[in-house]
């Protein structure tokens, strides 16, 4: 019962703060709304038994990625300033966005109607279990991600140095 309460409360928090990301006039505050969404999602991950992923999510997103974003938004100097309503949105794209959302919702309804979903089982995504799987069955993809991050670092350095050359 308390689990259901937690789920519905944090689902509402996640959706409301996600709407804040899209509609808030101040970029810096829109970003802080996303931080709230990330925390709510971490609660959902924990409820689903993904303990390690929830913690990694908090550290990587709330801790690193969004702080990086905050730096960039503040560096452009207009982060705390409100963007006027007429230059905030591209209203013409509201229609495709609505269409895609309706398609997604339709697909979801078809999926729910068409197949019987089992009840959720309890999984134990502790660091130990995840680590064991990561370094046995998923070793190759794991090594590839290290290559990907290395390439990301190179690309960022190359881009940042471009106009100095």
């Amino acid at each position: 019962m308390s689990q259901a309460l937690l789920f519905y409360f944090f689902a509402a928090v996640a959706v409301l703060s996600a709407l804040g990301v899209v509609f808030h006039p101040r970029p810096a505050r829109a970003l802080l709304c996303l931080v709230v969404t990330m925390f709510a999602l971490a609660v959902h991950f924990t409820l689903l038994g993904a303990y390690f992923v929830a913690m990694a999510h908090l550290i990587v997103y709330a801790g690193a990625v969004l702080v990086l974003f905050l730096f960039v938004i503040m560096l452009q100097g207009a982060g705390a300033r409100e963007i006027a309503l007429h230059q905030r949105f591209n209203i013409i794209y509201l229609l495709p966005a609505g269409l895609v959302s309706i398609l997604l919702a339709g697909g979801l309804i078809a999926l729910i109607r068409g197949s019987a979903f089992q009840a959720l089982k309890s999984v134990d995504g502790t660091a130990e279990n995840i680590g064991t799987l990561l370094f046995s069955q998923y070793l190759l993809p794991f090594e590839w991600t290290s290559l990907l991050i290395l390439l990301g670092v190179f690309a960022a350095i190359a881009l940042a140095k471009k106009d100095a050359a």
Partner: peptide, 15 residues
């Protein structure tokens, strides 16, 4: 869907 909405209608690249 909210994410798609944001990608399509916001005009600020960072957002």
């Amino acid at each position: 869907s909210i994410g798609i909405l944001g990608v399509l209608i916001r005009r600020n690249i960072l957002l």
